[in-house]
Amino acid sequence: MSREAVLVTADWAEKNIGQAGVVFVEVDEDTTAYDGGHITGAVKLDWKTDLQDPVRRDFVNQEQFEQLLSSKGIANDDTVVLYGGNNNWFAAYAYWYFKLYGHGDVKLLDGGRKKWELDARELVKDLPERQPAQYTAQEQDLTIRAFRDEVVEVIGAKNLVDVRSPDEYAGRLLAPAHLPQEQSQRAGHIPTAASIPWSKAANEDGTFRSDEELREIYSEAGVDFSKSTIAYCRIGERSSHTWFALRELLGQQDVKNYDGSWTEYGSLVGVPIALGDEPGEAPRA
């Protein structure tokens, strides 16, 4: 898959505002930024209230996803261009959802809100008017989603990529440093996981590094491209960003995102955990 098919530049986006069949969607965990100004015509998706099940820990199911996109006026044959703040983490998470539910043409805006703002490109407060659509979602494509049992099973067999910051990986911090540190999980990482922070994949302005740079970064950090890979972080959004880099940009075949991530793994009873900066050994069978 070529980079152009999955990632668009801010210039491309600016030229395609208002284009029939192209829908811009701003996604974030905290959508106050959207309310203060967004790309003209962009639809808002709230990661927490639109994309998560309100009761269970899981994201919206196939039917809920259909209802959501229908209500937002997004059709199956639309080109969906996702962007957001927080370095596109939640936009990448949403990209993964769209793929999971079989959407045909979905792209990420390179650099997301950050680059758009730093470039001083136009943001508006007007809300888009879209007619409801009839959206049909596919069953979840579980070839891109990992669950906890598989993760425990493949320790030492598949590439595990921990994309949190080095201090979270080592167990010195329990959450990203913009959040308070008192959390319920155990600290550390899954044994054998390579520490490759999500940020390695991005430039300072939030755009992705070149394919050549990405390939070098992941190879040097221990990703064996002949093997399958599972990426994880704390709640699954930073690892969606890395999943995007590995599968969508570099075209690695079998890459899964473990959305349970550390908030699940670090709470499991009896699973192995490694502390410190080294990956650690797989437990003996």
Binding site: D28, E29, D30, T32, W47, K48, R57, G85, N86, W89, F90, A175, P176, H178, L179, P180, Q181, E182, Q183, S184, C233, R234, I235, E237, R238, T263
Partner: peptide
């Protein structure tokens, strides 16, 4: 205004006061 919870990962509103429950003996 965003609230800081254990299940979130986004950057919170920087104008918000320190969340209640933050223990400055530890943080």
């Amino acid at each position: 205004m965003s609230t800081v919870t254990a299940d979130s990962c986004a950057a919170p509103d920087q104008a918000a006061p320190l969340p209640a429950g933050v223990d400055l003996e530890k943080e």
